[in-house]
């Protein structure tokens, strides 16, 4: 059983859902991720989506664009992201670690090499927002060969027939995009989220993890009632961005504790 599947099985037995913070690797400082991930795991995070920075993140709103640029300014590369995963494992992090990034840096690094190296580093899968299933066959095959999950998306605009096909090809979990838009903190969740998740659920028994716009403890609590996991990205990055340098780790921990309260 993959680490992702095992984690969902364990959480289910405990009656909990997976809380999954998003952190841009090397943000706000080059080494920050090495401290943030263990601290947030201790605070209750069950899995991590680690962002590989890209110069042109076209599915991301202003917050993650800024974090991505700052990480690039900090000298973060694709290889550094893989090294970060390996370093987190050597520091005892148990939670599944997924790398989220745009396709070009991965393609440049090499599909086979990227999968081999992520697996060797102790990573668990890929989330690639500009790689729909039609273009993903090669990466998905390589990921499978190395025991990694290639995470697929369902969105409110995905028609039922396509959702069935996505569900057939998916592994790990389905990343359910809560809204029609780019990433970014929002005041309110999509009022049609329940119906959307019910529609996805018709097509799959895989865990459903909701992302985009989840910003408050109330949002997390609501998602927890209807899904198997919740991703908090921009709201966390926004918060970290405002913290003084010496408060990054305790400030992020307090923010996550508040979200899970």
């Amino acid at each position: 059983m993959s680490r992702i599947a095992a984690t969902f099985a364990r959480l289910k037995a405990e009656g909990r859902v997976a809380f999954m913070p998003f952190l841009t690797v090397g943000f706000p400082h080059r080494e920050s991720t090495l401290e943030l991930v263990p601290a947030l795991e201790a605070a209750g995070a069950a899995m991590f989506e680690l962002g590989v920075p890209f110069s042109d993140p076209l599915a991301d709103g202003a917050t993650i664009q800024r974090a991505s640029q700052r990480a690039l300014d900090n000298g973060v590369t694709f290889a550094f992201c893989l090294e970060t995963v390996a370093a987190l494992r050597s520091r005892g992090v148990q939670a599944p670690l997924l790398l989220m990034g745009y396709y070009n840096p991965l393609l440049r690094y090499g599909i086979e090499r990227a999968c081999a190296d992520l697996a060797a580093a102790g990573g668990d899968g890929w989330i690639i927002p500009d790689l729909p299933p039609e273009e993903a066959a090669e990466l998905q095959q390589a990921a499978t060969n190395h025991g990694l999950d290639f995470i697929m998306f369902a969105t409110p605009t995905t028609p039922d027939a396509r959702m069935a096909e996505v569900a057939r090809l998916a592994s790990g979990f389905i990343y359910c995009v809560s809204l029609t838009g780019v990433t970014g903190a929002r005041r309110d969740l999509n009022p049609e989220l329940d119906g959307f998740l019910a529609r996805v659920r018709q097509h799959t028994s895989l865990p459903l993890v909701v992302g985009f716009g989840i910003s408050t403890a109330a949002h997390v609590a609501r998602v927890a009632r209807i899904a198997d996991g919740a991703i908090v990205a921009s709201a966390l990055i926004d918060h970290i961005e405002r913290l003084p340098d010496d408060q990054v780790v305790p400030g992020a921990v307090a923010f996550v504790q508040n979200l899970l309260a």
């Binding site: 599915a59 998306f153 605009t157 996505v166 838009g181």
Partner: peptide, 12 residues
């Protein structure tokens, strides 16, 4: 060529 786009845009 091809079509490397977010899932939200695939139907459009």
């Amino acid at each position: 060529g091809g079509r490397y786009i977010p899932e939200t845009l695939v139907p459009a």
